[in-house]
Amino acid sequence: MQHDAILPAAPAQSPDDVLIDIDRVTQVYAGVGSAVRALDRVSMQARRGEFISIVGPSGCGKSTLMMIAAGLLPASAGTVRVAGRVVDRPQTDLGIVFQSPVLLEWRTALENVMLQAEARRLPAADAERRARSLLTAVGLAGFEHKYPHELSGGMRQRVSICRALVHTPPQLLMDEPFGALDALTRDQLVLDLQELWQTERMTVLFVTHSIAEAVFLSDRIIVMTPRPGRIAREIGVDLPRPRTLAMRDSAVFHAVSREITDFFLEQGVLRERAAGLSR
């Protein structure tokens, strides 16, 4: 068992292999009276094509970390490098999926996906072909010309995922993408995401609350402490791909989710007995 101290950066690897290199990123917010520490010297690396989940309690700064990695928020200290280049402005070489689908209500599903292509001035015909094939891949064939308000929550999030992938980005950043969906829809989307990842092979940073989602999808899980967010553990998930729902009952799956659960129990993120209710 590892300890919940700050681990050194991931084991040595050839530098070409690393796509995202987060080096001692610290985030501090000015607060009333004293400053609030959101992230405390977070270092991690993601290899090309790796699927990494970041799991932690609410307020641990995992979403902040993602925003910093995307260049949408400057870090108070520390650096992020993507493919060796320091990120000091919004990165455009990626796809982002937020918890809400963030679709433009006046555009159809296809037009929403195509916004990405328009912004990047990609050749329209090719982009549309790719957009349609992505929509088909996530089960939205026949819904291309529907408006967001005509789609279910799960369908909207699928459109948002297609939009994040239409330009074949090397990285996909997802911030609790399935947090607002019902359990069955989540399962389906998790399966769809795995399939997309296996065909596209982009690097994924997947921020989630859900231990099960993280274990199911990830090559490696980064577990964060409560605020100020530090990396407590990095756990590799040694399950073959493609993973099936039945693997959720496997010993490896159990061991990994157990390890994370135990850590959260230890940290007081989870409590098995409510303190005030003892008789």
């Binding site: 925003m67 919004p90 455009t92 982002i96 433009l104 916004l115 912004a119 990047r120």
Partner: peptide, 9 residues
Amino acid sequence: KILLARSMG
């Protein structure tokens, strides 16, 4: 929506 636009360049 604005963050998205920025990430799209």
